[in-house]
């Protein structure tokens, strides 16, 4: 590339070896997770999602709720026609997959990253609100 020689050298200096620095860091994270799961396992009667009544195709329960990560879509479906509500997630996932081919600009400054940060915060607020609303 057309970077000046000194800048390349400077970048090459700022590295750490994968082992032991990064490896031990990941291992520490894994150990924290194991600790959390030991606590969860010990308190399983308190924190577990208890099993309900056996499935009965003849009896439809009053409130059917999907898992929490589908609650936002579930809430959306209450306001738009079913076909639209089913197509929106498909389109969203399609856009998600295609993102690197849509936004192809190579960046030179921090501005686009800030725009993306703000966009992410806004989308997150909307989705979280929809999820909480759908869960009520």
């Amino acid at each position: 590339m057309s970077q000046p020689e000194s800048a390349v050298e400077q970048q090459e200096e700022q590295t750490v070896p994968f082992y032991p620095v990064q490896f031990m860091r990941e291992a520490r994270m894994a150990a924290v997770m194991v600790g959390i799961f030991l606590v969860v396992g010990a308190l399983w009667r308190v924190v577990g999602h208890p099993i309900g009544d056996p499935a009965d195709p003849m009896v439809t329960p009053q409130h059917i709720k999907p898992e929490w990560y589908f609650l936002a879509i579930y809430q959306l479906l209450k306001f738009v026609p079913k076909t639209v509500g089913a197509v929106i997630p498909i389109v969203a996932v399609g856009l998600l997959f295609a993102l690197p081919f849509i936004d192809r600009r190579q960046e030179t400054d921090r501005r686009p990253a800030r725009v993306r940060l703000i966009a992410t915060v806004l989308v997150t607020v909307v989705v979280v609100a929809m999820t909480i609303w759908g869960g009520m």
């Binding site: 056996p54 059917i64 089913a86």
Partner: peptide, 21 residues
């Protein structure tokens, strides 16, 4: 787990999938 919640969540979930044109 095949309890009521599981059965009906799957019924509704697959039904929403069924609404895709």
């Amino acid at each position: 787990p095949w309890d009521q919640r599981a059965y009906w969540a799957t019924t509704v979930g697959t039904e929403i999938g069924g609404a895709i044109p």
